[in-house]
Write a protein that binds this DNA or RNA. Structure first.
Lengths: 214, 214
DNA sequence: TAGATTGTTAATCGATTAACAATC
DNA sequence: TAGATTGTTAATCGATTAACAATC
């Protein structure tokens, strides 16, 4: 349990480095990779790659680079990608169902995909009791605290309408969730010990639109 | 056509301010809002709000604040939210279909939602020719250049598998797209005049996972 | 006028990049 | 040994916050 407070932007790049290393394949490829090569794949400066990694240890060999397999395992360990993380989804609408299936499939197909969806929640009584992909049950929102505890859920994805999102976030926090990925188009406020990540499609489109005609 | 190169992070906050102002409602609310109030809603420092806005003009009145309706219209103009922007989607799989429907519905329901989905593209011959929500036709990838031109498409959303994403991006760029929102779990490389925004669910989950046990 | 809040300058903070001695 | 590349320090760059005169 490292108590390291790396900047968010560094964590994001580490996740990218890990993905790139995993894409390199176990066999057949080069055994070592330099910060220059990794930087090119990631679209960042080689000094930045070295600095990011150096925050967590000395993983490289001078004159040679980083051993791919070793660095990959180190990053998996740093990012908690070396264990299964149980997640849940709140809001089993169309987007929520699509995201759920996407996740379930990656978990089933990729041996290193660490996120396992173990529960969904929805207010709609017609949906409660049904299952997504025949495996993940949909529970009522009131079950959030029990299920988080009993199923060992650590992170949640919110795909409810904007108006409901803050209330859902509050319930998740009260239930003991540790991190939230929010798809709802609202700014959420959560206690500072809860990690919050934003996946706001219309905000991102609006950002892109700024650059049109420029 | 302002030729202003505002930092990306400022543009993101402007989009957030605009959404907050739109949420305030035309009638009934206060006529003016201070940088302090807007900052609290947005979760940012009041000085930052003033600085962000001051980059584009003098929108406020000393001692009073910003007139809500006026500031909203200015922001809509700055962000190109005051006109309809035609968009397309490549990859009419489950996630793509969900995102498409989400968009179509917001466009239909919210009078100020500026993004209109006018075309989808997919390689699957079984999908080509069908329509999403009975209104948006699915075309083969080869049609990208023609449709971009004929339908006046400015931005694209990519929801194809990782392996296909770079090729799709290249086709979109060749067809004259101006901006791309990428959901595929790969780092894309595009020319510098093309704006690229990332919506990478598994990368965001991986980022969140870092903070577990910390 | 007195109080409030802007727009802007200056101070602070943090992140990126360059440079290079250490060393494989 | 000669060449390459790391880890790290120093230099640069950019973004955030504080402070305040201007003024509604």
């Amino acid at each position: 349990m490292r108590k390291l407070k790396a900047p968010e932007v560094v964590v994001r790049r580490l996740a990218l480095y890990l993905r790139l290393l995993q894409g390199l394949g176990d066999e057949g490829g080069e055994r070592f990779i330099s910060s220059k090569e990794l930087g090119e794949k990631a679209g960042v400066n080689s000094a930045q790659v070295r600095k990011d990694l150096a925050l967590f240890g000395e993983f490289g060999k001078q004159g040679v680079g980083y051993e791919v397999g070793y660095l990959r395992e180190e990053l998996r360990s740093i990012l908690n990608a070396n264990r299964t993380v149980n997640i849940c989804l709140v809001g089993a609408g169309e987007l929520g169902t699509a995201v759920s299936r996407y996740n379930l499939r990656r978990f089933a197909r990729e041996k290193n995909y660490p996120f396992r969806l173990v529960a969904c929640f929805d207010t709609d009584p017609a949906k409660v009791g049904k299952k997504i992909d025949k495996v993940v049950e949909i529970y009522p929102l009131g079950d959030i605290p029990v299920r988080i505890r009993d199923l060992g859920i650590e992170m949640a994805i919110i795909t409810v309408p904007a108006e409901a999102a803050q209330d859902v976030a509050d319930k998740l926090v009260a239930g003991g969730i540790k991190a939230i990925l929010n798809f709802a188009p609202v700014k959420l406020f959560v206690p500072s010990h809860i990690r919050l990540q934003v996946a706001d499609v219309s905000l991102e489109l609006q950002q892109l639109a700024y650059y049109l005609d420029r």
